[in-house]
Design a protein around this nucleic acid. Structure first.
Lengths: 331, 331
DNA sequence: CTGAAAGCGCTTACAG
DNA sequence: CTGAAAGCGCTTACAG
């Protein structure tokens, strides 16, 4: 029928070629010291000659280790996640580990499926998802799989967690705009069901000190920022400052202002959140709240690795990361 | 000694709980039709109750499939790779596949290690690396692992490949600058040992039509672009246009010009290569050569998936992707 | 429709 | 130092 699939070279082939047992071949290949030099040479030579590459799946099953860290993210799009993955990758390289990045997922069911599919492929999990709560986690996480949470709404200390203080960051940004003399500060919000977006909005509102909140809907996308910017232009009285719940929406908003001939910050000031790399390249460069995204990814990874190395079940209090206001030309 | 590691729930536990054989449990769990409804119900109920999650590693070993695509990239940093992965992810989601992203690697040895480590974990490989040649591939790729190459220097049609026509793209950009009346077009080159950088440089030189080449060294980083920009400022006569081998160097170069008070394109025109998302957000927006990065990633993935579905060994001619000039305000 | 058993390719006590 | 054998957790012919 179809072309016969060529059988791959296994450790048995290597052992036969080197005329030793499979056990000795395994030991030689793995650099253990209970083999003679002569044996090791023969095995290595055979492996080389046959172009042997170990089947990692089989090794995983035997050792119960995969040397792989699973990463479940809400999305793979944009600089935020690119930075986060880069930070994780830094730590992963240093330890000789791999990164298994989950498909992006937009709802709780997809997140649950992503978590479930990690069992047996990874030694630990880094999970960032606005859709995941404690209940979903309990139902879908293999209970012996160490996990570190990033900005989920899971509370308690059953799992180690990193949490960006979105509320404080948003307050700082809003207060900054007001300290610049702005009186009508509008807010472009993120998705209504997103925990982080909620916290940022709350921080905005808490910083207003009695001023009337002006909130426009958004979904973290550049387009939604542009739409909100257009809506702001039509307001009367027009806001004199805008705090967007993330940088990409600020980018869209800035484009709308620019197209309408408004100057920033002359006519209207603007601030974002995240400090993605683009922020400092915009003109005017964007005032924003820096999270240290790559560093967050690295820290979460290191935390996970250290619990893996201890071997115990992962737990511990949540670490709160305080974001930093970066003042640039847009405010 | 240390806390005993809790043994995870296996299919045997589920089978015992449901009072059926492991084989029936497996069939019910996998939705095969050769089980009675009653059996399926009992098995599913037991699985749910025990919070069973299948060990994918074991399944991989049995089925010889991982439903995972390996991706080996030279780097994980920046928008280019973020876009590429996003494109691959699009295709991967549609097919229910996973993406295993390799650690970044800066030389041939690391690339070889990354390729080797994929065996047994992935059904196929997407490889983009300026360090990989046919020899290295033959030595390190499990010979039954389908692979699709992206912009490597491997030629021939042993493996399906995608190749961006860097030479043509660079010629187009350079000619565009000259058509705008520029007479002294400088080039900021990429890494000397990088195949793509070489091709772009060659395209630049071939487009000059006798004009003197002015080449500055770079390494694709923003910083190297800034350095080159500073060097250009010091030249006498000063070039009146710059073609950078990628957008990130153009970004750095633009910053240097801006800091020196030069106007773009008034005093000096500028063009890049890649069309990363930042390009249109810069002021002036950047003229560049668009590769359609996400689309390239998606196409490569689809090509791989289709060879996987056919089951035969992957092969085929290289597809050449013609990049497109995007004229914006910087030229 | 169901179950006992072999097998996927490794690693690792256990004996020698 | 070495090898025979069990085992990791699944799937899948093979019999019934």
């Amino acid at each position: 029928v179809s072309a016969e699939r060529v059988r791959a070279v296994t450790i048995r082939d290597v052992a036969r070629e080197a005329e030793v047992s499979v056990a000795s071949a395994s030991r030689a290949l793995n650099g253990l010291d209970n083999v003679t030099d002569a044996t090791r040479q023969r095995v290595l030579a055979a492996a080389q000659q046959l172009r042997y590459v170990p089947d990692i799946g089989a090794r995983m099953l035997s050792t119960r280790r995969s040397d792989t860290i699973g990463v479940v993210l809400p999305d793979l799009y944009g600089e935020f996640f690119s930075e986060l993955i880069r930070g994780m990758d830094t730590g992963t390289r240093a330890k000789g580990l791999h990164l298994l990045v989950s498909n992006s997922h937009g709802d709780a069911d997809e997140a649950a499926a992503a978590i479930r599919s990690m069992r047996g492929r990874v030694d630990g999990l880094l999970l960032m998802s606005p859709h995941v709560d404690a209940h979903l986690l309990a139902d879908n996480l293999a209970h012996d799989l160490p996990i570190v949470l990033i900005n989920t709404r899971v509370d308690g200390d059953a799992h180690p967690a990193f949490r960006v203080d979105n509320h404080a960051g948003a307050m700082t940004a809003t207060r900054h705009l007001m300290a610049r003399g702005r009186r009508r500060v509008a807010h472009i919000a993120g998705p209504a069901d997103n925990f982080e977006a909620q916290e940022r909005r709350r921080g905005y509102e808490d910083a207003l000190e009695g001023a009337e909140p002006i909130v426009l809907a958004g979904d973290f996308s550049e387009q939604s920022g542009a739409d909100a910017g257009a809506a702001i232009l039509a307001m009367d009285p027009r806001p004199d400052a805008v705090f967007a719940a993330n940088d990409m929406m600020a980018v869209g908003c800035l484009g709308a202002f620019e197209a309408a001939g408004l100057t920033v910050p002359g006519d209207i000031a603007l601030a974002g959140f995240d400090d993605i790399p683009i922020a400092r390249l915009l003109r005017p460069s964007l005032t924003t709240v820096r999270i240290g995204i790559a560093d967050l990814g690295l820290q979460a990874l290191q935390r996970l690795v250290s619990t893996l190395e201890q071997g115990g079940p992962a737990q511990g209090a949540a670490e709160v990361i305080e974001p930093e206001l970066i003042v640039r030309d847009s405010s």
